[in-house]
């Protein structure tokens, strides 16, 4: 089996590390930030590279630095979580290594020495199987796609890697969002459409989302109407989500919206119009007033 290098310089991705361990038969080299070696080891990394670096601003320079190391390690397979930062860094590494790179994969499998990568495109409406044609094969993998498998593994070797190069872009500050889980990684999404009717309606949905520990989503029409901010927009021109449960309130189910959420585990639709298209794509439909149901859920100790 070939070694797989998993690049997690900004935080270990346990699901991806576990998947890489399974694909490579335990031959995983993991690059993780300081303090996350134990986590990487628990997820099956056989070799660990612990990165010591100041906060990174010039990702292009960092990518060139990593590309040089990867040449040295001669790893034929390089994976990284498809986070905003790694989706910037991996393409630059791929350029330097002349390696084929596939973005945001949701399935990976080995066929001999080839890594077959499956990724959705165009919302979720196209699924493509892709392989690299280059000696080095690379992919970014959608976070949360694979379940973490923690277990007892032999003590891995730990190597330190120090990065301190002059940066052309400097990181001045970082401000975390209030309210926790980003929508794209939420396990439950509570979303509203035009049927929610107002900003006040969305405030109610937000309270419900808070109660359920869910992210708040919205259809494009609701965002256009000013009911919810753009960062909540799910669909073609917004964010693609695949939570375990997608709870759609007053969303009619335009194809553009379906493109952004049809990969969800379970879909529950609440709409007063029994003919709303969303019901065709839902595992469970509730025909009725969204607000009455939301009130019920807010009042009751349902969990």
């Amino acid at each position: 089996m070939k070694e797989i290098l998993v690049l997690c310089p900004f935080g270990a991705d346990p699901g991806l590390l576990s998947k890489a361990a399974a694909l490579s038969g335990g031959e995983v080299r993991a690059l993780v930030p300081q303090g996350e070696t134990a986590l990487a080891a628990a997820c099956g990394a056989a070799r660990i590279v612990e990165l010591q670096a100041a906060p990174i601003g010039d990702e292009a320079r960092f990518a060139a630095f990593l590309a040089e190391r990867i040449r040295g390690w001669s790893c034929p397979l390089v994976l990284a979580p498809a986070t905003v930062q790694m989706r910037n860094i991996m393409p630059m590494i791929a350029w330097h290594l002349k390696a084929g790179l596939t973005a945001d994969c949701t399935q990976l499998r080995m066929e001999g020495e080839l890594l077959i990568q499956t990724r959705p495109a165009f919302g979720n409406s196209l699924m493509a199987d892709i392989r690299a044609l280059s000696p080095i094969q690379m992919a970014t993998v959608r976070p949360g796609t694979f379940p973490p498998q923690r277990g007892e593994h032999p003590q891995p070797g730990v190597e330190r890697l120090v990065y301190c190069e002059e940066e052309r872009v400097t990181l001045l500050s970082y401000r975390a969002f209030a309210g926790g889980t980003p929508l794209s990684q939420a396990q439950i999404v509570v979303a509203g459409g035009m049927g929610v009717g107002s900003r006040e309606g969305f405030q109610k949905l937000e309270r419900l989302a808070d109660k359920l520990g869910a992210g708040l989503g919205a259809s494009r029409t609701a965002v256009d109407a000013g009911f919810a901010p753009y960062r909540c927009q799910v669909g073609m021109t917004g964010i693609t989500v695949c939570p375990r449960l997608y709870l759609a309130f007053g969303i009619s189910g335009a194809v553009q919206h379906l493109a952004g959420m049809s990969g969800s585990g379970k879909i529950v639709a609440v709409n007063s119009d029994p003919k709303a298209p969303i019901f065709d794509y839902a595992d469970y439909g509730i025909v009725g007033d969204w607000e009455a149901l939301a009130d019920k859920l807010l009042q009751e100790e349902i969990l």
């Binding site: 390696a99 409406s125 280059s134 609440v270």
Partner: peptide, 27 residues
């Protein structure tokens, strides 16, 4: 440097689950 091996047009699958009109039962 990459090659698409297969591509599948996938209109989101219809799930057509049961519909409930009673809010209490629905909740």
């Amino acid at each position: 440097a990459t090659k698409v091996l297969a591509m599948e047009s996938r209109f989101p699958g219809m799930r057509r689950g049961p519909k409930e009109t009673d809010l209490t039962l629905g909740a």
